[in-house]
Simulated scan of single mutants.
Amino acid sequence: MVSVVQNVAIDCANAYELARFWSEVTGRPLHPDDKPGDRETEVQLADGPVLYFNQVPEPKTSKNRIHLCLRPDTSRDQEVERLLGLGATFVADRREPDGTGWAVLADPEGNEFCVLRSTSERA
């Protein structure tokens, strides 16, 4: 027997707005029933679990213990620029001179995530 990951839960201050940001990041839709003011929302990923946003009263106070790593279909650096334009903030540069490494960004509520090299950049 095994367990299947149903969703990745993200506590947040504004579930709908943070889900809209991640919908733009992933290019995937919100659940059709989600609307502004909802305390629980979902981004429906193409395969696997959904991103589940749960509105909580307490603010984020420290570094994430778990985070998402994104592999873009464009170059890593192009994706970093796109995400910054959507409202992400730059946290740390872990890119190396030889092209390896990643960039650490944060979503509008401060949740860190990484942008990796694309598949073509790794080839």
Rank of each mutant, 00 (worst) to 15 (best):
E24C: 11
Q55D: 10
E17N: 11
C12H: 01
R82H: 06
E79F: 07
P32L: 08
L83H: 03
Q6T: 12
E121N: 14
N14W: 07
L84C: 02
Q44M: 15
R76T: 03
D47M: 13
V50S: 07
R20M: 12
P108L: 05
E17L: 06
C69T: 08
V4I: 12
L105P: 08
L30W: 11
A92S: 09
W102V: 00
R65T: 10
V115M: 00
V91R: 09
L45M: 07
L86Q: 04
L84F: 09
G85N: 07
I66K: 13
D34R: 00
T41A: 05
P57K: 10
D93W: 04
H31M: 07
V2P: 02
G99Q: 08
L116N: 11
V80D: 02
V43R: 10
S118E: 06
Q55H: 14
N54I: 14
E79I: 03
E121F: 14
L116H: 15
E121D: 12
N111G: 07
P29V: 11
R95H: 08
N54W: 14
K60T: 01
G87Y: 07
H67L: 04
L30T: 06
R117M: 07
D34C: 09
L86S: 06
L68A: 13
K60C: 04
A15T: 02
L83C: 00
L116T: 04
V8F: 11
C69H: 14
L30R: 09
R122I: 10
L70Y: 13
V8L: 12
L18A: 03
A15E: 05
G37K: 11
V104E: 07
D34L: 01
L70D: 03
R71T: 08
E112G: 04
D11K: 11
V4W: 10
Q55F: 12
E121H: 14
R65K: 14
R95F: 01
L86E: 03
Y52P: 01
E17W: 05
E24I: 05
W22Q: 04
D107T: 12
D77L: 02
V80E: 01
E81W: 04
S3Q: 10
S75L: 03
E17S: 10
L83K: 00
T26R: 12
Y16A: 00
G87C: 06
E109S: 03
E17G: 00
G27Y: 06
I10K: 01
E109P: 05
A103N: 02
C12F: 05
H67K: 02
D33Q: 14
C114T: 01
S23Y: 07
G27K: 01
V43A: 11
L116M: 15
Q44R: 15
G99E: 06
L18Y: 01
V104L: 13
T74D: 13
Q78C: 09
N14Q: 15
T74S: 15
A19E: 04
E81D: 11
D47R: 15
K63G: 00
V91M: 03
R71F: 06
P57M: 09
N111S: 14
L83P: 05
P57V: 09
E24L: 12
E112H: 08
R117T: 04
A19T: 05
A46C: 08
P97H: 07
S120N: 11
A92P: 05
D98Y: 14
E58C: 06
C114L: 06
I10V: 06
R71C: 02
R28G: 01
A88F: 02
R94T: 03
E112R: 10
A123S: 13
S120T: 15
R65G: 09
L105T: 12
P72F: 03
D33G: 05
